[in-house]
Design a binder for these strands. Structure first.
Lengths: 208, 208
DNA sequence: CTTGACAGCTAATGAGCATTAGCGTATAAT
DNA sequence: ATTATACGCTAATGCTCATTAGCTGTCAAG
């Protein structure tokens, strides 16, 4: 891997741990294995490195979201696909998504970075809301809309459904970021949440 | 208000906006209206100011949570109290709680500060999880447990109920912190969430 | 072989930072 | 009246930081 990439990698790692201001250019250089002034052969300055992280990840993130939403075409795909969604389907989907979000170094560090820098600028506030709230919610809103159309779940406002489904997932993800040692326990809670959600909204009336 | 208190106030305001490292002692002093070295007549150093913020708020926060949970006595209070809880009761409770959390300067700034400093130390991680996740959840877990006992809502795992109820509230609170101009819209969503939640779990079977 | 871009280095610069030393003044206690 | 304490100030110290200047070696293109 080229030096320019390694700088980005180490900078992101450090920024996500301590925050932008608490990391010095020298620390980044040390981590890369060069001297601080050499960084300036690759980037115009500290701020430039910070910005480059986001340009870089915008690409990656685009690819990632594309790969997810490829399954949900334009508007009315085969309803059978959504009709076949079960609690197991959902649970497995969430499990793999969270596992990826937690264990992919890049994704995980970036989320922490945006979290702690979210009030630094309107751009970062918007990025947080866009990437970690709105986008996920819109995805599930669409999913639930189709599940309603396919008569798998009850007819309720899909936006509120998505909120009720997503928010606990995001909250638990945050808990994992703060306390990685509790991951197993949190994943169990997560699975319980998904199954409760499905049971609540599935058309089969719940037995009393 | 004494200088010592004003220092804390201004320091919290600045820290919550820019983060600990981005705020200089001189900036705090300027905001208070004194020169930087004069701060040291009141606090041993910058770090000491930071710590004092948390000592101060631990007190305030204790009083606050006491004032809330005073209504929920030891174990089995009069079931009628919980039997009488309606969607309106819940919506009003949430609305006032959120309004307070958003508009009380101290509470609001502290939440932002803990949010952006949550990965700085294990203590701050624990504080965040404790204060902004666990405590709220435990409160509602207890509430729902009693509502189940009072046959207001269906029998489900109270922990998962609390998660499903709280997480959207906390997520929307975060949205308000990032985008205060959207507060009205967010409050409407919030009310929708609470009412959906109640409708879902209330014993009256939902009409199809 | 020469040239020039590339990517590292050391040394230096200048700004900003937290903090300390030491002084003056006002107010409250003796 | 004297003294001590509290609290403000200016000046200075020493450290860290981001950044620049300028040197050196490498290596591919001409």
């Amino acid at each position: 891997m080229g030096t320019k990439q390694r700088i980005l990698r180490e900078a992101l790692r450090l920024f996500s741990q301590k925050g932008y201001d608490a990391v010095s250019v020298e620390q980044i250089a040390d981590a890369v294995g060069i001297k601080a002034p050499s960084l300036y052969k690759h980037y115009k300055g500290k701020r430039d490195i910070f910005d480059a992280i986001f340009e870089e990840t915008a690409k990656r993130y685009g690819e990632f979201t594309d790969s997810i939403s490829v399954h949900m075409g334009d508007s009315d795909q085969d309803l059978a696909v959504f009709g076949a969604i079960t609690a197991d389907t959902l649970a497995e989907k969430v499990r793999s998504l969270i596992a990826y979000s937690l264990h992919d170094e890049f994704v995980s560090q970036l989320r922490r970075l945006v979290t702690i820098e979210q009030f630094r600028s309107p751009e970062l506030s918007a990025l947080y809301s866009q990437r970690y709230v709105a986008q996920i919610q819109q995805y599930h809103e669409g999913l639930f809309r189709r599940m309603i159309a396919a008569s798998v779940i009850r007819r309720e406002d899909p936006e509120l459904l998505a909120l009720m489904y997503d928010a606990p997932i995001l909250l638990l993800l945050g808990e994992c970021d703060r306390h990685p040692e509790k991951e197993q326990e949190i994943m169990d809670t997560l699975e319980g949440h998904v199954r409760l959600f499905y049971r609540l909204f599935s058309k089969q009336p719940p037995e009393e």
